[in-house]
Computed example of a mutant assay.
Amino acid sequence: MILPITLYGDPVLRKVTPEIDKDYPNLNELIENMFETMYNAEGVGLAAPQVGLNIRLFVADATILADEDPQLKDFKKALINPQIIERTGVEESMEEGCLSVPGIREDVSRPTKIRIQYYDTDWNFYDETYEGFAARVIQHEYDHLDGILFVDHCSTLRKRFLKGKLTNIAKGKIRAPYQVRPPRK
Rank of each mutant, 00 (worst) to 15 (best):
D21E: 13
M34S: 02
D23A: 14
I116Y: 09
F75I: 07
D61L: 13
P183V: 14
P183A: 15
I174V: 15
N54C: 11
F58R: 03
L3G: 00
P49M: 04
E141R: 08
A48I: 05
A78Y: 12
M1H: 01
D146V: 02
A176V: 12
D120H: 08
G52L: 09
A78D: 08
F58G: 04
N168K: 15
V44T: 08
E96S: 04
V180Y: 10
T88I: 11
Y39D: 00
L3F: 03
Y178T: 04
Q83T: 12
G9L: 01
M34D: 02
N28E: 15
M94D: 07
I55K: 05
M38N: 01
E86P: 03
F133V: 13
H140Q: 07
H140G: 03
M94Y: 10
R184I: 15
A78I: 11
W123M: 09
L157G: 02
Y119T: 08
V137I: 14
Q71V: 05
D23V: 08
G97W: 05
D107W: 10
N26E: 15
K22L: 14
A78K: 08
R181S: 15
S100D: 04
L13E: 06
K163I: 00
L30D: 06
F125Q: 08
I104Q: 06
N33I: 07
R136W: 01
Q50R: 05
K173N: 14
L53G: 02
Q139W: 01
C154D: 08
Q179F: 09
P4Y: 08
I55R: 04
V44M: 13
L145T: 02
I169A: 02
C154T: 14
F125L: 13
Y130L: 10
H140W: 06
T167N: 14
Y126P: 01
E32G: 10
I85C: 07
S93L: 04
R115A: 12
F35I: 07
E106W: 09
G132T: 06
H153A: 09
